[in-house]
Design a protein around this nucleic acid. Structure first.
Length: 134
DNA sequence: GCCAACGTTGGC
DNA sequence: GCCAACGTTGGC
């Protein structure tokens, strides 16, 4: 199993909305690095959901429910989506500030490549964030 | 609201 | 194929 972190501006698509809908299509990715990460996702992979701009914190966990297929919202180009289902909110949101202050998390792309919207996490990084939320 | 980072576009 | 200009993202 692999671990990921996805970012969304809650104004555009929030964890609340994913929970309300029960299932979400992760569309609109128009960045090759992010798209390639989407394509590497396998069903059952665990995905942290991060709110950018507003909140700037990890709020919950979701899971890949359907592997990548062509993005129906793309007018042209070779883009992909995956489908995700919510797993649970984490007990306490973990802010970007806390992530930055945690040495074990210093290498995640959230910090180094702030514009990447879909990024891999190691199992250790994933577990660390969950531990911090307790 | 500003600006740094960085990806993309287009002229040469 | 290089690189300057430009647009977008996202933190502050």
């Amino acid at each position: 199993m692999n671990f990921w972190l996805v970012k969304s501006e809650p104004d555009a698509y929030s964890y609340d909305k994913l929970e309300a809908e029960g299932r979400g299509m992760w569309d609109g990715v128009r960045n090759y690095a992010a798209r390639n990460n989407l394509r590497a996702m396998k069903e059952g992979d665990q995905v942290l959901f991060y709110h950018s701009n507003i909140g700037m914190e990890v709020v919950g966990i979701c899971q890949v429910a359907k592997e990548h297929y062509p993005d129906p919202t793309a007018e042209s180009g070779d883009w992909s989506v995956v489908e995700v289902i919510p797993v649970r909110r984490i007990k306490r949101p973990i802010t970007l500030k806390e992530i930055k202050a945690t040495p074990e998390l210093a290498n995640i792309a959230l910090i180094k490549q702030s514009r990447l919207s879909v990024m891999p996490l190691t199992a250790e990084e994933f577990e660390k964030i969950l531990k911090m939320s307790k």
